[in-house]
C-alpha cells in the first residue's frame, strides 16, 4: 500500500496542452488515494519520440536532466502519467546501466546522476501498490452500466523483459481497475495494437487507418467509450476520430476517457478537477449510461471470442 508515500511527479509537456485533463485528473486521483506527488522543479521535455529517433544518448540526456531534478528533491522514484515519457525516462535508466553509455550521457548534461532511479507510470502504482481491491473500497459512485473498451497502447508494458509491468500481450491493469469501479469491461483483443503514435502530424492518413481499426472493433463490441492511459493514444482516438471516420467512410462517436477521469467520477471527486469538458467527443451520452442496468440493452454482436474471454476471466 502506497498511501502516504511521496513520489517525484513528471507531468510531461502534453499535460499542460493537449492532455491537460489527464494531468489534472491524475493529480486528483493520486491525492484521493494518498499517493503524494511532488512536481519535478523546472522539468524539461523528455524529447518524446523525436529524441530517441534522432539519438539515444541525446534522448537519455534529456531524461537524465529530469532525474537529476528529482535528486534535488531527494527523490529517486519518479511517476509520470504519460507512457511516452515513461518509456524515455525508463529507457534512460536502463541504458545508463550499459557500459560506456553513462559516460556519453554525462558528457552532455550539467549534473550527472548520483543515484539509482526507478520510473513508473501512475497507473502502475495505482494497480500494483494501491490495488484494484482497495480502489473498489473507495468507490462512492459505481460506474454500473458503462461498457468500456480498455486501450493500453504500445508502450506501457512492452517488451515485458524491459518494462516489468503487467502482461505484455494481455495487460489487465485498466480492465481490473475499471471493473473495480463497477464498469463493464469488454474483451478487446486489439488493446495494444498501435494507434499510429507520433505519425499524426507527419501523415495523418496513417493514424486514421490504424486508429480507425481500433474504433471499428470497439463499436462492433457495443462499447460506450474507450478508456485509455496515454495522451497520444487519446489524441489519436479522440481528436482525430473524425479523420478516422472520413478515412473509413463512416462516422464514429465514441468518447475516449482517461482512466483517471473515470476513477475520479467513481471516487466522487470534484468534477472540475476531471476536465471532462476537455474531451472532443462529447461524453454526455456515455456518462448517462451509468446507473442503468447493463441487461436492459440488447447484447451486442461480439462473437465466440468474447464469450470465451468472459468465461476464462469469470
Amino acid at each position: 500500500m502506497t498511501t502516504g508515500k511521496t513520489f517525484a511527479y513528471y507531468p510531461g509537456c502534453s499535460g499542460s496542452g493537449t492532455s491537460v485533463e489527464y494531468d489534472k485528473s491524475s493529480r486528483a486521483v493520486c491525492e484521493a488515494l494518498g499517493i503524494r506527488l511532488v512536481d519535478l522543479p523546472d522539468w524539461n521535455c523528455c524529447g518524446s519520440t523525436p529524441a530517441h529517433q534522432v539519438d539515444h544518448v541525446l534522448s537519455a540526456a534529456l531524461s537524465a536532466r529530469n532525474l537529476a531534478q528529482a535528486e534535488t528533491l531527494g527523490l529517486c522514484e519518479t511517476l509520470t502519467p504519460c507512457p511516452s515519457c515513461l518509456k524515455n525516462l525508463h529507457n534512460a535508466v536502463e541504458h545508463l546501466r550499459e557500459p560506456g553509455f553513462g559516460a556519453r550521457v554525462n558528457a552532455l548534461v550539467e549534473r550527472p546522476l548520483t543515484r539509482e532511479h526507478s520510473v513508473k507510470s501512475v497507473l502502475q502504482i495505482i494497480y500494483e501498490d494501491v490495488t484494484p481491491e482497495k480502489v473498489a473500497e473507495k468507490v462512492t459512485r459505481t460506474l454500473n452500466g458503462l461498457k468500456l473498451v480498455p486501450y493500453y497502447g504500445c508502450l506501457m508494458n512492452r517488451p515485458g523483459r524491459s518494462m516489468h509491468f503487467d502482461d505484455e500481450e494481455n495487460p489487465q491493469a485498466l480492465d481490473k481497475l475499471m471493473r473495480a469501479l463497477g464498469a463493464e469491461v469488454l474483451p478487446f483483443p486489439l488493446k495494444q495494437e498501435c494507434c499510429g503514435g507520433a505519425m499524426g502530424v507527419p501523415d495523418n492518413r496513417i493514424t486514421s487507418r490504424l486508429s480507425g481499426r481500433l474504433l471499428e472493433y470497439a463499436v462492433s463490441l457495443g462499447a460506450d467509450a474507450f478508456v485509455v492511459a496515454c495522451p497520444l493514444c487519446q489524441m489519436n482516438l479522440d481528436m482525430r476520430q473524425a479523420q478516422a471516420g472520413d478515412y473509413y467512410g463512416r462516422g464514429f462517436n465514441l468518447p475516449v476517457f482517461y482512466y483517471t477521469q473515470l476513477m475520479g467520477i467513481a471516487l466522487g471527486l470534484d468534477k472540475t478537477r476531471l476536465g471532462l469538458d476537455k474531451l472532443i467527443v462529447k461524453p454526455a451520452a456515455a456518462l448517462a449510461k451509468i446507473g442503468r442496468k447493463a441487461k436492459e440493452e440488447a447484447p451486442a454482436a461480439s462473437g465466440a471470442g468474447r464469450t470465451a474471454e468472459a468465461e476464462v476471466e469469470a
Binding site: 502482461d167 505484455e168 500481450e169 494481455n170 474483451p187 483483443p189 465466440a304 471470442g305 470465451a308 474471454e309 476464462v312
Partner: peptide, 12 residues
C-alpha cells in the same frame, strides 16, 4: 505462455 495466440482464451 503465448499471449499473442490468446493464451488459451479462445476455444477455437
Amino acid at each position: 505462455v503465448y499471449g499473442e495466440y490468446g493464451a488459451g482464451r479462445y476455444p477455437d
